[in-house]
Every structure is written in structure tokens, then in C-alpha cells.
């Protein structure tokens, strides 16, 4: 474990807590894409399949349980909670996210480190996570006024993988043979997808204005 990875995990945890805070306290998921939440639930379900077969540390297992539990409970809240589900703007959140799942699965069947069931699904989860934010970014473009919590959620979610990139550089420099191109490229693409969001987020923060993405 290194400081970059810890910062990444804490940033990721913070993003999840911000979203749960928003949904649980003000019982609203306005501006949040259910499609992105469903994709993230699939990402964690396919990435943490080894949670019962391989143990690294209490921390590792605990964080996996937190991410699995939070992503599925957010999907449950947005789909079935009587108050929250009413605040979900269904007609704006129209990204065909299933069109992201299949290409990622096909790509994982083609490009992976080992052709085993767990490895292919793990690779699939990396590819899917890289594009999972797209429905949310599209929804943000359509939602005129983005509330602070939603903006912070997306900002933190985008930042965590950026810290992971620093972690990969650090591990590449300090651990011999630590080379994982698939993880690195997927992580880089994922972070780059946030580039314009980060730009407008900083602009709004600098000018102390409401966050608005250009249509």
C-alpha cells in the first residue's frame, strides 16, 4: 500500500459517502444517473468475485464490502425507495448503458492477461468502469443546475482513479515486474473522460459560480 493508493481509495470512499449522504438525508437523487449506478454495481460485482477466494488484508476485504454494499443499496434506493425514486429524472437519464456492457465484455474476451473466468470478468470490470461515468456526464449536460453534492460526487469519483495512476507509476518504479498495461490504459481513459468536467468544475469553483456544463 502506498500513499497514492490510500488517497485514491479514500477519495473513492468519499464519493460513495457523499452520494449516500445526499440520497439518505435529503431523500433525493435529482441529477444522479441510475444508469451509472447500475454500471458501477456491475463493475464491483465482477471485480470482487475473488472476495471469498483470496484474502489480502482486512482493509482490502472491508473496502470491497463497502463498495459492493453501497453501490447496490444506491441502486435499490433509486429504483424502489418510495420517496427517492420520485426524484429520479427518468426521462433525462436515457443513455443506452447496455450498449456499453457488451463491447466491454467482448473486449475483455479479446484482450486480457489470462483467459480464465475470473480474469476475463475482472478485465471486463476494468473496461466497464472506464466508461461507467458516461451516462452521468450526459445527464449533467442536460441538467441545468447541478447541485453541490452531485458535483462533488462526480469530482471525487473522477479524482480517485487519478490517484490510482500515481499509485501505478509509484509501483512500477518501486516493484520489479509490476506492469499491467490493461489496468493502466483503462484507468487513463477513465480519468481522461472527466477532463472537461474537471475543467468546468474548477472554473465554477474559481469564479465561485454554480457548476454548469455547456449543453
Amino acid at each position: 500500500m502506498n500513499i497514492f493508493r490510500l488517497a485514491g481509495d479514500m477519495t473513492h470512499l468519499a464519493s460513495v459517502l457523499v452520494l449516500l449522504l445526499k440520497i439518505h438525508t435529503i431523500k433525493s437523487c435529482a441529477g444522479v444517473s441510475l444508469k451509472t449506478q447500475e454500471l458501477y454495481a456491475i463493475v464491483f460485482a465482477t471485480r470482487y468475485l475473488d472476495i471469498f477466494t483470496s484474502f489480502y488484508s482486512i482493509y482490502n476485504t472491508l473496502m470491497k464490502l463497502i463498495f459492493l454494499g453501497s453501490s447496490f443499496s444506491i441502486v435499490w434506493y433509486m429504483r424502489y425507495h418510495k420517496t427517492v425514486r420520485r426524484t429520479y429524472d427518468r426521462e433525462q437519464d436515457t443513455f443506452r448503458h447496455w450498449f456499453l456492457v457488451l463491447p466491454c465484455l467482448l473486449l475483455a474476451l479479446l484482450i486480457h492477461e489470462k483467459f480464465t473466468f475470473l480474469e476475463v470478468l475482472w478485465t471486463f470490470s476494468l473496461y466497464l468502469e472506464a466508461v461507467a461515468i458516461l451516462p452521468q456526464l450526459v445527464l449533467l449536460q442536460r441538467t441545468r443546475n447541478i447541485d453541490n453534492l452531485t458535483g462533488q460526487y462526480v469530482f471525487l469519483l473522477g479524482g480517485y482513479r487519478g490517484f490510482y495512476i500515481l499509485n501505478w507509476i509509484y509501483r512500477y518504479l518501486t516493484e520489479p515486474h509490476f506492469v499491467h498495461w490493461i489496468t493502466w490504459i483503462a484507468g487513463l481513459v477513465q480519468t481522461l473522460l472527466y477532463a472537461d468536467f474537471f475543467y468546468y468544475y474548477f472554473q465554477s469553483w474559481k469564479n465561485n459560480k454554480k457548476l454548469q456544463l455547456p449543453a
Partner: peptide, 10 residues
């Protein structure tokens, strides 16, 4: 070994 290593990340 190295591939196993990658799995220690979240």
C-alpha cells in the same frame, strides 16, 4: 506472481 499482485488493488 505479478498478475496476482494487481488483484491486491480495489
Amino acid at each position: 506472481k505479478t498478475t496476482k499482485e494487481a488483484k491486491d488493488e480495489l
